[in-house]
Computed example of a mutant assay.
Amino acid sequence: MAQVWRCSGLRWSASGPVLVWDGGRHSALTRGRRVAFAVAEGGVRTCVGARGHACPLGAVVPGRGTGARCEECARLDRAHSVAADTLADDPRPYRVYLAWFGPGMVKVGITGAARGPARLLEQGAVCFSWLGTGPLMAARRTEELLRAALRVPDRIPYADKRAVRAALPGTEAERAAELAELHARAVALAGWPESLDREAFRPVDHVGVFGLAGAPAASGEVDELVPGGAVSGELVAAAGPDLHLATAGGVVVLDTRFLPGWGLVPAEGREFDVPVKALKGVRGEGAGVQDGLF
C-alpha cells in the first residue's frame, strides 16, 4: 500500500514556493518540475483544526473549500488573527501596503513587518509598494482610511486575479503606474495616524518571481479534489497559492488551498481526472491525460 501524505499547504520562502507536509517535510516547487499526486481512494477531506490543535470532531469538510476547516475551527482560527482586531496590544510593528494584481485591481492591506514581502507573495500580488510602518492599530486605521476615502478594497477574489495573469502589461513601469498614482493620493490624505511613518513609493515586481513572463496562458482551473482523482503536470508558473501546470490539454491552475485535509498518494502515471472548469473569462476547460510522479 502506498504511503499516504498530508499537505499543510504552500509557503513562500526566500528561494521560492514550497509545499509543506505534515511532519515537517518540504517539497521545493521549481519551474519545469512535474507535479503529480492522487487523492487516496475512498477517503474524505477532514478538518485540519486550528492554532496547532486537531479538530476535536474530526469533521468532514467540503472539497471546494479553501480553508479546510469546519465552522468551529475556522471561528477559533480567525479569533486569534490580525484581521479580527483582537490583538490591539500587539507591540510588534506592522506595515501597510498597496498591492496590484492587474489593471483596475489594487487592494490595501497590512502585514507584520517581520514577515517582509511574504504576505504579498502568498496573495499573488504582481506588484506592490509599502505605504507606512507603525503599531497594529495605527496600521489598521490607515487601511480603513484608504478604503473609505479612496474606495480601495481590502480583498480581491482569486478568480479575478487568475483571469488577468495572461494579459498583464509587459514592463515593470507599466505594471507600477496604477500603484504610483494611488500611492500619491494615499500619502496626501489627511487623517493619517501620527504613529504611522509614511514610506516613499518603491514598487516591487513579482512577475519574474512567479514565472509569469512568457508563460503560456491558463485555460482552466481545478474545481475541487475528489477521492481517487489525480493531478499531474509540469510547473510553468506559481503565484500566491496557485500552481500553473502544463497538461496535454493546456495549462490548468491548481489552487493548493484545496490540498490540506486530503490523504495524498503518488499518481503512478494516471490520467488527469479531477473536475476542471474554465478559467474566468476563458472558454474551454483544458484538461488532459498525464503521467509522472510528484
Rank of each mutant, 00 (worst) to 15 (best):
L121C: 02
A125R: 09
P260K: 15
V251H: 06
E285V: 10
D77E: 15
R185W: 03
D160V: 09
L254M: 02
V35P: 00
R141H: 10
G102S: 12
P227F: 13
L225W: 03
A278Q: 07
G233A: 07
V108K: 11
C70P: 00
W192M: 08
P56G: 12
D273C: 15
L19F: 03
D223V: 01
R34C: 10
A190V: 03
P153N: 14
R6Q: 14
V236H: 10
T247K: 12
A148I: 03
W21M: 11
L87K: 04
E271C: 10
E174H: 06
L168E: 05
R175E: 10
G43F: 00
G9A: 13
R64V: 08
G229H: 07
A186P: 00
T66M: 09
H26T: 13
A177N: 00
H244I: 00
E199Y: 01
F272H: 13
R51C: 07
W262P: 00
L131F: 06
G65N: 02
A246E: 15
L19M: 07
I110W: 10
W12P: 01
V82H: 07
E224W: 03
V82P: 01
R283P: 00
M105K: 14
V96E: 03
P93C: 11
T133K: 13
A246N: 03
D90F: 04
E268N: 04
G191M: 09
V222I: 15
A68D: 02
S129Y: 08
R140L: 14
V96T: 09
A138R: 04
P169E: 12
G52Q: 12
P117V: 12
G191L: 11
V282C: 09
V207D: 01
G214E: 09
A287R: 15
G214K: 09
L182R: 07
G32V: 09
R6N: 08
R162A: 10
R51V: 02
A230Y: 02
E144H: 14
R155K: 06
G24P: 00
